[in-house]
Design a protein around this nucleic acid. Structure first.
Lengths: 213, 213
DNA sequence: TCAGCGTAACCGAACGATCGGTCGGGTCAA
DNA sequence: TTGACCCGACCGATCGTTCGGTTACGCTGA
């Protein structure tokens, strides 16, 4: 009698997962993940501090207090969301192509994969890139990001030392500008819109070869 | 008897300007500009929505209600700050070097100048780049930014059409990535710290020639 | 089959704290 | 005296969260 139907669309309540409910049921039920998907969209639109629990309540189509059945508080929602982005990014650094081979190839792999992960987990990475530092969770996220940035910078530095990349721009500066460019994608990328095909390839080309004809 | 001494340091009350006060005066007095300098720092640190008037009051060393002598409200502070950044950026587009000559030279000029303006007006541009859209002022700022971005994209497109820049990356995408890189400077640049010399030159080199040795 | 149970997920009302802003009053230098 | 700049107390609204209660559903045993 019960059946799993999965998410149907994004919108107030629409992202709720119908989990093993009667076929004629009128009640939708959230899981943490489905609630998080709604949450991260609102956080990105209004900012974490600019988002009230009432805003989330409206977006999800459930009462404000119902949210507390799923999570302890607003900050836990933030932690779950940015944690997902961080896990994905650190996962890249653990891939074989990021660990073995010439430094420049590893860097190129990380650049491409970072761009791909950013596109795949856009809402979560977007939120991560916008954290400030007002809460313990935000400070934790910033610390984790610094660790990721450091590891990537070491990779670029090794490629410079091996003579594979230009040495006239300080490696740390180059790293920041390079990843600044990748991260900026969150400010304009919209899945499915024009001009978004081959973004990862464009990033690699611009990064390594520049704009010149 | 009165004398103008100017700002002395950044900190609570310290940014206040001593304006034509008796030599033995113990009273500091804010102007809109000096209050704005404190404000923009706090806005950037905590985010606009994450900043309370109490936060500003503490940073400035005056009572919350005193702020309302200078400005009508919190949003006016935001408008003054982002307005300053916008004026500076649009000023670049009006410079002779941005108007006359080969497209690629004009673009290079705009890239360099944008980077320089960003560094010179760092707190104000930082704030501008972080606006969301929750208030009328933020929506206005976003609209103005879109106009700036559009004009720059036209410049890059003209350079591509003239065969001066690579055509295999869609011009709008290239513009976004390029200015994404420049704008990302606000996330890490600290005046006077290591690795910040020649940032504008580094940006131009990376943008036009890429990372390859 | 169906009544009854347990519980996950939900609700509205209320809480204490904080928010942006107002108001009447004060200080100080020209 | 006047006006720029300031103050503390206070306001109504909103904030994130709690609390006691309700609903809907799946499961089980008679």
């Amino acid at each position: 009698m019960g059946q799993f139907v999965g998410p149907v669309a994004y919108g107030p309540g629409a992202a709720a997962i119908l989990v093993h409910m009667a076929e004629n049921s009128t009640r939708t039920a959230y899981t943490v993940d489905s609630l998080l998907a709604v949450t991260v969209g609102v956080f990105n639109e209004r900012g974490y501090d600019g988002t009230s629990m009432e805003d989330l309540s409206r977006a999800a189509g459930i009462s404000k207090s119902s949210i507390y059945h799923h999570v302890r508080g607003k900050e836990e929602l933030l932690k779950l969301a940015v944690g997902r982005a961080l896990d994905a990014l650190f996962g890249i650094l653990a891939e074989p192509e990021a660990l073995d081979g010439r430094s420049v190839d590893r860097l190129e792999h990380v650049v491409r994969r970072t761009t791909e992960v950013l596109l795949a987990e856009l809402p979560y990475v977007t939120l991560l890139l916008r954290v400030r530092g007002n809460t313990a969770t935000e400070q934790w996220a910033l610390e984790r990001r610094r660790d990721f940035d450091h590891q990537v910078a070491e990779l670029l530095r090794a490629a410079v030392a091996a003579g594979e990349l230009r040495a006239d721009v300080e490696p740390r500066l180059a790293t920041r500008l390079l990843f600044g460019m990748i991260n900026s994608i969150v400010e304009w990328y919209r899945p499915g819109s024009k001009h978004t095909d081959g973004v990862a390839e464009a990033v690699v080309h611009l990064a390594f070869d520049g704009l010149r004809a």
